[in-house]
């Protein structure tokens, strides 16, 4: 299954949009944090996990999903959120802790919740597996369209709940896909020191489901693999496991000095960046020209700038709003 030119252009635009969004978040995050870096300071306090480099996983997935597909994501979720169609203005406002944010400022960047497109993310590793399986169960019980995806990192595949949820999804033959974004690093621990086998796709055999690993971090390859798993889920044939090798171009969180990362790997980051590579590929394939590519970039940047203008102008929540929404 190959993406159409239109789908390829969409994937390129979403990748560019995410990358610029991360750059603007990064700059905003650093405001008020120098000369002394303190996570608690500035207009964007707290933790910040950027998704630079992992965009191909997000767009290869997002190109196949509709707003009826339930998507439970990990903590490095910005690219996935954009590709799923999360409202960028309200997401940015949430990350900046504004009343106009998706959760009215109660959640922050780790917990992006947009019910309109059934997307959420969480910072507890592997926590999203069970809920995605349950959402798939709900879709199946009601005979509704829509599948469910849990997206975790390769570190999440070593959680006990991963095994429980994979088995449950398989024994009930649910329209569920587990996507592992393998960026090689679980905070500071490399996959080779945390995982007994090279490919987590091999684990699919333990649950009697298909498993596939994509190593290129290329949107087209990921699109094809996701397409097979989505088709299987939509046809009622059961769950699938995908492992997508990708790259974490930033530290685990902003402020992470990455002392654990080999210098050669840090030096090689520019070559590992999937976005310039995909741009060259689409231009070479005649899908777009340099001028068209620049126009896409400009459009994506304008949209992000608009979202930041909206978020920065938005009001903060009232202190007493903290007491609302504990119960519905």
């Amino acid at each position: 299954m190959q993406p159409t030119p239109k789908q390829r252009l969409w994937m390129y635009e979403m990748m560019v949009k995410n990358r610029y969004n991360e750059a603007r978040l990064s700059a905003t995050y650093m405001e008020g944090k120098s000369p002394l870096f303190n996570m608690a300071n500035g207009p964007l306090p707290g933790e910040m996990h950027l998704s630079d480099g992992q965009e191909p996983c997000a767009v290869g997935l997002g190109a196949h999903l509709t707003k009826d597909d339930y998507f439970a994501c990990h903590h490095r979720s910005h690219a996935q959120a954009l590709a799923k169609g999360v409202d960028l203005k309200r997401m940015t406002a949430e990350i900046l802790g504004r009343k106009a944010g998706l959760s009215e400022g109660r959640a922050g960047h780790i917990h992006i919740f947009d019910y309109e497109v059934l997307f959420w993310s969480s910072g507890i590793i592997g926590q999203n597996m069970g809920p995605a399986v349950g959402a798939a169960l709900a879709r199946k019980m009601r005979g509704e369209a829509g599948i469910a995806i849990a997206c975790i990192g390769e570190g999440g595949a070593n959680q006990g709940g991963f095994h429980e949820a994979m088995n449950l999804a398989a024994v009930w033959k649910l329209p569920f896909i587990c996507v592992i974004e393998d960026n090689q690093w679980a905070v500071s621990v490399p996959k080779s020191k945390s995982t007994a086998i090279a490919s987590n796709a091999d684990r699919a055999a333990a649950y009697g489901m298909p498993g596939e690993r994509v190593i290129s971090n290329d949107p087209d390859d990921i699109f094809a693999a996701v397409g097979r798993a989505v088709a299987r889920a939509r046809a009622g044939e059961g769950p699938s496991l995908l492992e997508l090798q990708t790259v974490r171009l930033q530290g685990h969180f902003m402020g992470d000095p990455e002392v654990y990362r080999p210098k050669a790997e840090i030096a090689a980051k520019p070559e590992m960046d999937p976005i310039p590579r995909y741009r060259r590929k689409l231009i070479a394939a005649g899908v777009m020209t340099e001028i068209e590519a620049d126009a896409i970039v400009a459009r994506a940047h304008a949209e992000v700038d608009e979202a930041f203008a909206f978020a920065r102008a938005a009001a903060e929540p009232a202190p007493e709003d903290a007491f609302d929404k504990v119960f519905v």
């Binding site: 339930y70 597996m129 069970g130 809920p131 169960l137 469910a148 709940g161 949820a165």
Partner: peptide, 19 residues
């Protein structure tokens, strides 16, 4: 199965969609 993390988590996901 004896998988409380999975099935209680699954209950949350199913409930999110109206079950």
């Amino acid at each position: 199965p004896i998988s409380e993390t999975a099935f209680i988590g699954a209950a949350v996901g199913a409930a999110n969609l109206g079950m």
